[in-house]
């Protein structure tokens, strides 16, 4: 990767060779996301980049267009905090704890403002990200036909979808546009300092969303060496060249989970639901868990103070290592 002694021919090369991508979340967000950006946020209960979401709220970034399939409490929080203008969506709920409270307040009552929602499905949206990752302009999908999803169009207007006769067999074919977010944010188990990001467990649309994005922030449980990455390279889902920031953020997806590290925090999920039931409760929640905490380490410290170390310890995963693999020849 690094080639000592090689001359730097331009700034990009200088940056690549000499500037580390490893930085605190605060800098990763400040340097790479601005008002109005289109942001892909990975996760599927599994590995939501929650500390990044908190940092976006903390920095007061506004007018974002956000996307991912099966959005959950992290998107609900961003909407409630007023960071979101547009949402390329499939679904948003608090899972076990029902409907997203802030999402509903936004769409039913315009609190804090009414977001614009462009609705797809858990097949079509991942396909749009896949198309984006491959540089294709659009992709055919076989769902959505016959539903009212075709009768509602928001900020994408007539470009939400097109129906054509297939040039091959003349059958009606639904096309949906590729998506290329300005930035993708994912949380993974491990990455090296260059951003070769390794993930295992439930994938959702993480790999496609990250690779569809023009650049990627990798949040990870641990930074490992390039040699460690090389011991099991099939687990890498995003290559270093796409990555602009690597943030070592233990417990970075809490109250979601990261396989092999910690469990879903159902108690915290319930806590958020109860808090977000009311506007005041949500405001207090943000103050306590986002604005009044400096960063993720501070958040964890507050969690332990608030709920006790044993509750925190109980979330930590057991170890059961998988069978080692060999790539030798």
């Amino acid at each position: 990767m690094r080639e000592p002694g090689r001359l730097c021919t331009d700034f990009t090369e200088f940056w690549r060779v000499f500037m580390s991508k490893v930085m605190p979340m605060k800098d990763a967000i400040k340097n790479n996301i601005k008002d109005g950006d289109f942001v892909y946020i990975g996760g599927y209960i599994c590995r939501p980049p929650f500390s990044a979401v908190h940092e976006i709220i903390r920095q007061g970034i506004k007018d974002l267009t956000v996307t991912r399939s099966n959005a959950a409490d992290d998107f609900d929080m961003l909407i409630g905090a007023g960071c979101v203008r547009r949402f390329v969506s499939t679904f948003l709920s608090l899972g076990l704890y029902g409907l997203g409270r802030c999402y509903r307040r936004s769409l039913e009552k315009g609190i804090p403002h009414k977001i614009e929602v462009e609705e797809y499905t858990n097949l079509s949206l991942p396909m749009m990200l896949l198309a984006g990752s491959m540089g294709m302009p659009f992709i055919p999908v076989k769902d959505m036909v016959g539903t009212d999803l075709l009768n509602v169009k928001s900020f994408m207007g007539d470009n939400k979808y097109k129906i054509i006769e297939s040039p091959f067999d003349g059958r009606p074919t639904l096309l949906v546009p590729a998506l290329n977010p300005d930035i993708g944010i994912i949380h993974v188990q491990q990455s090296d300092e260059e951003g070769n990001a390794q993930m295992w467990g439930i994938g959702g649309d993480c790999q496609y969303g990250a690779n569809a994005s023009k650049k990627v922030i990798v949040s990870c449980e641990r930074i490992v060496s390039r040699d460690t990455i090389g011991m099991d390279p099939s687990r890498t889902i995003v290559p270093s060249f796409k990555v602009v920031a690597v943030v070592e953020e233990p417990f970075g997806s809490h109250p979601g989970y990261t396989p092999g590290f910690y469990d879903v925090d159902f108690a915290m999920g319930k806590f958020y639901q109860l808090a977000s039931d009311t506007e005041d409760g949500f405001r207090d929640f943000l103050k306590e868990w986002v604005y009044d905490t400096a960063d993720r380490a501070d958040y964890i410290k507050h969690y332990i103070e608030r709920f006790g170390y044993s509750q925190f310890k109980n979330l930590q995963a057991d170890f059961s290592y998988s069978y080692p693999v060999s790539y030798e020849y």
Binding site: F91, L99, R104, E119, T121, L123, M144, L149
Partner: peptide, 12 residues
């Protein structure tokens, strides 16, 4: 009157 979660995986 009531905003529900959306299509998710059910629609496909």
């Amino acid at each position: 009157k009531s905003r529900l979660p959306g299509s998710g995986g059910a629609s496909p």
